[in-house]
Design a protein around this nucleic acid. Structure first.
Length: 873
RNA sequence: GGGAGUUUAGCUCAGUUGGGAGAGCGCUUGCCUUACAAGCAAGAUGUCAUAGGUUCGAGUCCUAUAAUUCCCACCA
């Protein structure tokens, strides 16, 4: 009894399928020493996050790799989780509190953390719920959170380990300060933006007479100046070197020093030195033993060291200083310049370099192994140019400031004796200090959120315990992510893994592009051009979204989001659905086997070849091309050709070749489903279930591997000939205005001996494809109606006798066009074959190939000429 | 200031070791052919950014130029 399914595919089934997968535990992986593991660590989603199309892309790619390898028989673990996202989350909570009129300070640390955990429980799972709609097959049983007890333990273990090695230290250094978030940030979090700015020229009076002119972009830092520097080779300043200048308004006396750092050509050649507020000036200050005067508060306002300007904001103070210089006649001019300004990548606030006591990770010894493992090939990065960026960053790495003046995160495991201030680093405060005191105060700061993310590849597997999971699944196979977190995360995971596990956290890193809007712009809140993937899934289904995001994209290229492309994907799914519908309509139940015909062998051979190509592409992370190859095979070869060819055999229940046709139709459909499953898991699973009529999942079905036994080159060539003939006939019919629905009585093939057998074998299919009732195959050309239109292909001429009188002029014209094309081909081949250089240096196979082509086209040209002559009679 | 990418049909993009320029969308023409009109068939469309070079042969390799995007960087 033939089964029936809807005429149009409806993706509404996705939800139920995902639920079934979950219930069956198909996503779960257990360590199994007898099996080869395949592991991906999912980049933990921020608990502040909602799913956006960028997530949809990265998780689709990972799911494709996971599903592919699961089908290939690997013991596949995809580890999911969420990240506490220290600063992002804290900012959100603070904002939410502000709406209630509350502040961090008002409610205190404990109450704040209570709120934060509540926030996490409430919003932390949103993205996880949304991910499920996308169809991701990660092991939810193992879901982790960066502030779980176990993961927190790993953080402290790592911190203490580095501290004991002397690689974590506390020091007063110049750091990046965000006056808005009121915390330090790392170098990686500073974004440098070129901005139009003003360069102000002023002069300081020199003690004993005269002035020295200088230029600055930041007049407010004049209050923290402790020197003026000039280049030691600059003759203009020889006379004033060593003299003292007076900073007006605050009457500070500072020296004029010589330092190589100063560029003679820039500005006036003299630079004001503010060690507390500029990295370069800080270095100069160290060299000349200059005092460091901090003139700013943590919120960016001027402090008491700013004298009369205390309490003003940076911007107010700047205006007032300029006005005061003018008033005293010490202002010279203002120039407009473009210069780089550092901003906080999270809030956009202009960064203030400040001197502060902070915790740092010494990077030199950690960076070296991470660089070595890359240079020696132990870590593969695709695309290769990303590897160069990785190496460059590590070669120029600076120490990592890890302390943050925040509350949400892992609190620094350092304790200070309340009596003598001595520092102890450990999981807990010691009993007694060396000074005999017993009371300690824990460091107030928390760690940079990436400090815990760095451990993700092994902390999630139970480290520092020696778990079976760790032994089996570490290191992971590949990390899939965007370029934006190369420095934040990828590099830090690498050195953390090498240091604590003695091995890379992943063998490969794959970077992909981003999803842009239809105009090629980045999606952003300010442009309001974001696409909500949940809405897309509701309208088109997750499969259509997934397929659209990856199909036909080069591996590291950005992709554009188009509604049109989404429709193309949906249409493809519908095509697949209808191919299934077609198969089901012809299915009888138990299908006997039979000896495959030429066309069966052709599609089997093609499916075999396509399996190989898809496998190779996915293996080399060329996901876009893999999807494209599978897509093209299903639509162009399976649906458009094979299904059409096989129809006469299926329609005739008496046809002895029917079982083989049915068998091949089904088998190939299943190969299609398998090849497509990693990309579009829902529809393929649904169809597989319908076809199998039993509760078996496609997720664990064996991946189609290439086999030499299913390679049929002769059948492939034969079907290529058939396709050429059919295409020629269709074109001729359209030109002669013979409607496709109009069946002509017969097509007649007169062919060379070599291919005659083939046309005899496929007579029925050929007739159907040509829109004729019958096909006759002959050696000679007897019985050709004067009224026949002819189509010449390689090795045969096909005649279409038409009922109506053929317009001989029109037909002659058509044939002449054909002849012209062939002439061009002949000419091209001949030109190559008389070229001495080509004959001497081209590979022998190529020459033989060209000779073959020449012969073929010459023969076809003769055949066409014969047809033209026939009409002329 | 340094580095990387991109430039191919009207639009969006493929093009794996150099060996006859491709897809999707759009467009034109003909079809509701018993899987699918979310479909079928047949078409049209390209100085492969520019200028040189290597080679028998260049979209593909080399050099320069232009446009564009991105990353890195402490010139006040």
């Amino acid at each position: 009894m033939a089964k029936q399914i809807e005429k149009t595919y409806n993706p509404l089934i996705e939800e139920a399928i995902y639920k079934r997968w979950l219930e069956k535990g198909y996503f779960h992986a257990e360590p199994d020493e007898r099996r080869q593991p395949y592991t991906i660590m999912m980049p933990p989603a921020n608990i502040t996050g909602r799913l956006h199309v960028g997530h949809a892309l990265t998780f689709t790619i990972q799911d494709i790799l996971i599903r592919f390898n699961r089908m290939r028989g690997y013991n596949t673990l995809w580890m999911p989780g969420t990240d506490h996202a220290s600063i992002s989350t804290e900012v959100k909570i603070v904002d939410a509190m502000a709406e209630e009129g509350l502040s961090k300070r008002a409610i205190g640390r404990e109450a704040f953390l209570e709120r934060a955990w509540k926030w996490r429980d409430e919003y932390g799972g949103i993205i996880v719920q949304q991910l499920k709609l996308l169809g991701v097959s990660c092991d939810w049983d193992r879901e982790r959170f960066t502030m779980d007890e176990g993961l927190s333990r790993a953080v402290y273990e790592f911190f203490i380990h580095l501290y004991n090695k002397g690689w974590i230290y506390r020091a007063e250094k110049l750091i990046n300060w965000c006056p808005k978030c009121k915390t330090t940030i790392s170098d990686a979090e500073v974004e440098h933006e070129d901005m139009e700015g003003s360069l102000y020229y002023f002069k300081y009076p020199i003690e004993g007479g005269g002035f020295i002119e200088f230029a600055t972009t930041r007049p407010e830092t004049i209050l923290g100046d402790t020197a003026v520097a000039v280049n030691p080779d600059d003759e203009r300043f020889m006379g004033v070197l060593g003299k003292t200048v007076i900073i007006p308004f605050i009457d500070r006396r500072i020296p004029i020093v010589a330092d190589d750092y100063v560029d003679k050509a820039f500005g006036t050649g003299a630079v004001k030195i503010t060690p507390a507020h500029d990295p370069n000036d800080y270095e100069v200050g160290l060299r000349h033993n200059l005092p460091i005067i901090n003139v700013m508060n943590d919120d960016g306002t001027m402090n008491s060291a700013a004298g009369p300007y205390a309490g003003q904001t940076r911007e107010e103070c700047r205006g007032n200083i300029i006005a005061d210089f003018k008033r005293q006649g010490l202002y010279i001019k203002t120039e407009t310049i473009s210069h780089a300004v550092g901003t906080h990548e999270r809030c956009g606030e202009v960064i203030e370099p400040l001197i502060k006591m902070q915790w740092f990770v010494r990077m030199a010894d950690l960076a070296k192994p991470a660089l070595d493992v890359y240079n020696s090939g132990g870590l593969k990065i695709v695309p290769p140019r990303a590897g160069k960026i990785y190496a460059h960053w590590l070669e120029n790495i600076r120490d990592w400031c890890i302390s943050r003046q925040l509350w949400w995160g892992h609190r620094i495991p350092a304790y200070y004796c309340e009596a003598c201030g001595k520092v102890f680093v450990g999981k807990e405060a010691p009993e007694t200090c060396a000074c005999g005191h017993k009371r300690f105060r824990q460091d107030e700061d928390v760690l940079d959120t990436w400090f815990s993310s760095a451990l993700w590849p092994f902390s999630t597997l139970g480290w520092p315990e020696k778990t079976r999971e760790l032994a089996h699944f570490y290191p992971s196979n590949v990390l899939v992510t965007g370029y934006d977190i190369l420095f934040f995360w990828v590099i830090r995971m690498t050195f953390a893994g090498l240091e604590m596990m003695g091995d890379v956290p992943f063998h490969d890193v794959m970077f992909h592009g981003i999803v842009r809007d239809e105009f090629g712009r980045k999606m952003s809140k300010s442009l309001n051009n974001g696409v909500d993937p949940i809405q897309v899934i509701q309208e088109f289904g997750a499969d259509a979204l997934r397929l659209m995001l990856v199909t036909g994209n080069a591996l590291d290229n950005d992709t554009r989001f188009f509604c049109g492309r989404l429709e193309t994907s949906r249409n493809f799914l519908n095509k697949l659905w209808n191919a299934t519908r077609f198969a089901l309509m012809n299915l009888d139940g138990d299908e006997p086997r039979g000896e495959p015909e030429v066309m069966d062998k052709w599609i089997i051979s093609r499916a075999n070849q396509v399996s190989k190509e898809v496998t190779e592409r996915v293996d080399s992370y060329d996901i876009g091309m893999a999807a494209q190859i599978a897509y093209d095979f299903v639509w162009d070869e399976y649906c458009d050709w094979y299904v059409e060819m096989v129809k006469p055999r299926l329609y005739n229940r008496e046809d002895p070749t029917r079982p083989a046709a049915m068998r091949t139709l089904l088998d190939t459909l299943i190969v299609c489903l398998k090849l497509l499953h990693p990309f579009v898991p829902f529809i393929t699973e649904e169809i597989f279930t319908i076809l199998q009529d039993k509760d078996e999942t496609l997720m664990y079905a064996a991946w189609p591997e290439y086999s030499e036994a299913r390679f049929y080159p002769e059948e492939e060539e034969a079907v290529d000939r058939l396709k050429a003939a059919v295409k020629g006939i269709r074109a001729a019919r359209l030109e002669m205005n013979v409607a496709p629905s109009k069946k002509i009585n017969a097509v007649l093939v007169s062919s060379d001996e070599g291919v005659r057998g083939f046309f005899t074998d496929i007579q029925k299919s050929f007739a159907i494809l040509a829109g004729a009732k019958e096909t006759y195959v002959r050696a000679d050309k007897t019985g050709i109606d004067d009224n026949a239109v002819s189509v010449v292909i390689n090795g045969a001429t096909v005649y279409l006798p038409l009922d109506e009188l053929v317009d001989k002029d029109k037909e002659t014209e058509r044939l002449k066009r054909e002849k012209k094309k062939l002439e061009a081909e002949v000419e091209r081949a001949e030109k190559k074959l008389v070229n001495e250089g080509f004959m001497k240096k081209a590979p022998r196979e190529l020459i033989a190939e060209e000779r073959g082509k020449l012969e073929k086209y010459k023969k076809m040209m003769a055949d066409v000429t014969e047809q033209i002559e026939r009409l002329a009679l």
